[in-house]
Write a protein that binds this DNA or RNA. Sequence first.
DNA 1: ATCTAGGGTGAATGCGCTTTCAGAAGAAAT
DNA 2: ATTTCTTCTGAAAGCGCATTCACCCTAGAT
Lengths: 351, 351
Amino acid sequence: MYDVAERSGVSIATVSRVYRNPDSVRAQTRERVLEAARELGYVPSGNARGLASRTTGVLGLCFPDYADPDAEADAEADSDADDAVMLYSDQIIRGMERAARRHGYALLIAASLEGGPESLVAKVAGRVDGFAVLAQTVPTEDLEVISRRLPVVMLAGPREIDHLDHIVVANADGERELARHLIEDHGLRRLAFIGGEVESPDAEARFRGFQQACRDAGLPVPDAPDLRAEMMTQAEGARTAEALLDRNAGLSDSERPQAMLFANDQMAVGALRALERRGVRVPEDIAVTGFDGIPLSRIVRPPLTTVRQPIRQLGEQAVELLVQRLSDRERPPVSLMLPVSLARRASCGCG
Amino acid sequence: MYDVAERSGVSIATVSRVYRNPDSVRAQTRERVLEAARELGYVPSGNARGLASRTTGVLGLCFPDYADPDAEADAEADSDADDAVMLYSDQIIRGMERAARRHGYALLIAASLEGGPESLVAKVAGRVDGFAVLAQTVPTEDLEVISRRLPVVMLAGPREIDHLDHIVVANADGERELARHLIEDHGLRRLAFIGGEVESPDAEARFRGFQQACRDAGLPVPDAPDLRAEMMTQAEGARTAEALLDRNAGLSDSERPQAMLFANDQMAVGALRALERRGVRVPEDIAVTGFDGIPLSRIVRPPLTTVRQPIRQLGEQAVELLVQRLSDRERPPVSLMLPVSLARRASCGCG
DNA sequence: ATCTAGGGTGAATGCGCTTTCAGAAGAAAT
DNA sequence: ATTTCTTCTGAAAGCGCATTCACCCTAGAT
């Protein structure tokens, strides 16, 4: 910048103005400066600018370093499938990027490898005006510290820190509606719910929705999932499906569950495969449902009935909240719940 | 930082060391500092750090602001399809993010709205250690200036500036192999190639591959595509397909083209729909192929035979090149060509 | 007890830019 | 020609951190 100033015979202040506020510089002077900048290959330092102006024009996103084992497995088995599998994080990124672009922000993304002062999270936090965090990505403790300094919005999970903005999807409502559909529209009465880890708030919320649907329909209300998966993967889905089959082997047809509701799509897809291996027909012998609406869910046979999450909107809303908070730091914390929609497909007997 | 230093009774130099090089500080002192930082909610400024150390630990990606009209249309018509459509940019982002993560970098992404000194491109350039640019995103002129200051890798396109690293996919080889497949394996002899804009180097390279295949097979070699689309969209694919049909209406069966090779998948998908409307069966009446291997290509009926681009690898390689160049600025410019693979599906008569 | 290493720490400088605050230059008015 | 506004431009003071250099302290060696 000093070089540009010298070369064009002005002061650095004027060079700065040329970039920050072109109209405040006489056209002729401006041209001289721009010309010099071009000749010198001058690229303004975002760092210095950010330091001086105390704003970066960048928003951030931190997501878990969860290298989805299912996705990897699929990729090896079928390179086609790999392309189709758009991850949760991909969609959030897309949503945020779109919204950020509208507001003139760039987006800085990083998967958190681990915590600690030298983590990527710290890197992101130090370089953005505000950022979004996927639940269970950043230790609450770190988040607590960071959020005192800049806007943070929490995505999809419990609101661990109550002064943060946060967005969730209607997990309970979705599962409730899904179960209602099975009960009322398909006349099923014996439903089995396969949950996830206890620490997964999403899975728990979905189970609560399931309970509510049972209550609504006057069916017995279980106080815990019929089975829990260790991880919410296809492998575990397959294992739990088989476990359920084995457990119910002795029952008569009129006692046996008529549907398996899985806490997410990955498990449901795994279950579909296990059931096929066992020769159990879906949906004739038993209905199967998932949750999430991942792309894979519509490619499997039979296509999976599930609850679609508006993940892209999640990302877009995140940016909106950040932008709003940036313009008013005093605003009381906001908590949004995004509606979900039922995708009725063949695995429950529809379509 | 000054506050932290004061509160923990040390100098700012020590606070800095605690973060930059923890081992150089006595454990007891370090704890005091960390404690103070926690109490004060201290978040190191990436800007200041970057300014002082002249490195950001961030890599960038600029891609076109091409709001894909097809994707938007699909989204409205069928919210399911929307999820499945993983864009080119999504995949590059994913590839780059993975690779960046491995190297400890975060990723800054931005679609370029327009050029000029205040563009998002400028923002990215000023905040990263190096970045990747999708072809035809940034004016060559701007790129020329920026690339004098920091590593830039050009993705998928002509190498506009010869001192840049750059990566392309084997467009010509792929199309040539595709055409060879139609000719040799399916015995087709009359092939029509539908190209894209003249300025699209990818489309042109694909056409050259097509020409080569004709030459290889001893068939007449066209010196231009049978038809050109204005834009490489579904709508244009449909239009050109119909135009081709009309043009050949008067021909006998033994003169009529047996296959339509489109320069990309989007057009081919549009064509598929148009042909269906016209009652033309694929592949019985005519074979149809695309190029790219977008997820949509396997969902449509019939599934589209196409050439799969290794887009994720494109992103990963981009990061590798950047990292390498960062460690050796003097290295001669590299030019990589990534291999593609043929996806034989039903639309050409396979499977 | 004296000397020598080294690890640990602080003072000071500069990274490249933004942003007042004044002052200079030009235009308009008297 | 002088005064009075505007419009432009420059000087200078940071922004928050990394880093060098010098210095101090402690522990082991003599």
